[in-house]
Amino acid sequence: MGDEVIVVAEQGVLEVTINRPKQRNAMTRGAAEAIARAMERLEEDGGLRCAILAGAGGDFCAGMDLKGFLKGELPVDARGGFGGITTWTPGKPVIAAVDGHALAGGMELALACDLIVANRDAKFGIPEVKRGLVAAGGGLVLLPRLLPRQLAMELALTGDPIGAERAAELGLVNRVTDGPAIEAARELALAICTNGPLALEVSKAIVRDSWLWPIEEINTHQNPYVRRVFESDDAKEGARAFAEKRKPEWKGR
């Protein structure tokens, strides 16, 4: 049996591919732990700026491996939760490249990423109720924050999927492509990687963490994040490179 997750680093981008195509990349504990290790590598490696999470064989992830579930196995990592990324994500950006099915935990896996690129034929949904289960990997919490309550409720209670174009209309998907999602995800990743690494991490942190900030306390919470950037060598280099009409040479500090 080959590796359940394939990890390749190139041009500052860590590509993490779920490699169970015959099972539509249904998640196992081993795969979840492997994804978690890849995300820890992204966090720790100064040469990496961004990650892409994809699935092999034309599907992203069809959710939990039900055969494993019946044996008592839950596809979770101790730190990262379902799929190794739903309860903890690295400070650096992660892009989901979705082909085929992103269902149940597969949709929750995509929502745990920071951006989503999808092939036009991709399907998104949380059909757990059809199996007598509950979308416990974050779907029932994230969707009401990302969508109008009634739409989130429809997805949760019917379990019916939506297509990539509808998901894009609702703001769940960044880009819809006619080709393989991984190709469009690579373009997006490289565009991200040209920017200041510290600025990227802080921007991601503010976008994610500010969901919980009271409106009257935004500056109080945001200032410690922003101070790290404005006092950094990268901030000075960015201004200097702009003035000198050249590409910046980022140090990540």
Rank of each mutant, 00 (worst) to 15 (best):
3 D>L: 15
5 V>K: 14
6 I>Y: 03
10 E>W: 10
11 Q>I: 11
13 V>G: 03
18 I>P: 00
18 I>D: 00
18 I>N: 00
24 R>P: 00
25 N>D: 05
27 M>G: 02
28 T>F: 12
29 R>V: 02
30 G>R: 10
31 A>G: 07
32 A>F: 14
33 E>C: 15
34 A>L: 11
36 A>S: 15
37 R>D: 05
40 E>K: 13
40 E>N: 08
43 E>K: 00
44 E>N: 12
46 G>L: 10
46 G>S: 08
46 G>P: 03
53 L>F: 04
53 L>C: 06
57 G>T: 13
60 F>R: 10
66 L>F: 15
72 G>R: 13
72 G>P: 03
73 E>P: 07
73 E>R: 12
74 L>P: 00
75 P>T: 11
78 A>H: 05
79 R>C: 03
82 F>C: 02
85 I>F: 07
89 T>M: 11
89 T>E: 11
90 P>A: 09
91 G>M: 07
92 K>Y: 08
92 K>V: 12
95 I>N: 01
95 I>C: 03
95 I>M: 05
96 A>C: 05
102 A>S: 05
108 E>K: 00
113 C>N: 03
117 V>A: 10
118 A>M: 09
122 A>W: 10
122 A>R: 04
124 F>H: 07
125 G>P: 06
127 P>A: 11
128 E>M: 04
129 V>C: 10
131 R>G: 10
132 G>F: 13
135 A>H: 13
136 A>S: 12
136 A>W: 06
137 G>P: 05
138 G>Y: 12
139 G>N: 09
142 L>A: 15
142 L>D: 15
143 L>C: 09
145 R>I: 13
146 L>A: 15
148 P>H: 14
149 R>K: 14
150 Q>C: 09
151 L>K: 14
155 L>G: 05
156 A>G: 07
160 D>Y: 05
170 L>E: 01
170 L>Q: 01
171 G>T: 08
171 G>L: 06
174 N>H: 12
174 N>Y: 11
181 A>V: 13
181 A>S: 15
182 I>L: 15
183 E>K: 08
189 A>G: 02
194 T>G: 00
195 N>C: 03
195 N>I: 02
201 E>H: 00
204 K>F: 12
204 K>D: 14
208 R>C: 03
214 P>N: 04
219 N>G: 08
221 H>E: 07
224 P>H: 11
227 R>C: 02
232 S>P: 04
234 D>P: 02
235 A>E: 14
236 K>Y: 10
241 A>S: 12
250 W>Q: 00
251 K>D: 00
